[in-house]
Amino acid sequence: MTMKAIDQNDVYIQQKGYVVSDMNGDKVMMSIESGKYYNLGQTGGRIWELLVEGNTIFGISTVLSSEYSVEQATCQLQVEQFMNTLLKEGLIVSKRD
């Protein structure tokens, strides 16, 4: 079985069904179904917010590089790696699915 990887051209959106909260600036969430607790941290929390209505890696990194002191290329690479983790955990889905 091949694991899905993030596609740079795809639009991704939050998977529904998670209890989400802010804790000392970190975004934390819990899945009753899978019995898992997630801490996305501050930057991850901001990425999560940008996935509410669907977004691409490029779209997210463009917003983040305007808000944070980071180069767009570096930001895009790290956002892609992070979103790959979210996808594997089932926290986000492609709008094409």
Partner: peptide, 19 residues
């Protein structure tokens, strides 16, 4: 107008099994 940018932290996901 200069908007001060926040410090960048590499995003990471911490996972804990509730069970």
């Amino acid at each position: 107008m200069n908007i001060e940018k926040k410090e960048w932290q590499t995003p990471s996901l911490e996972v804990l099994e509730i069970s």
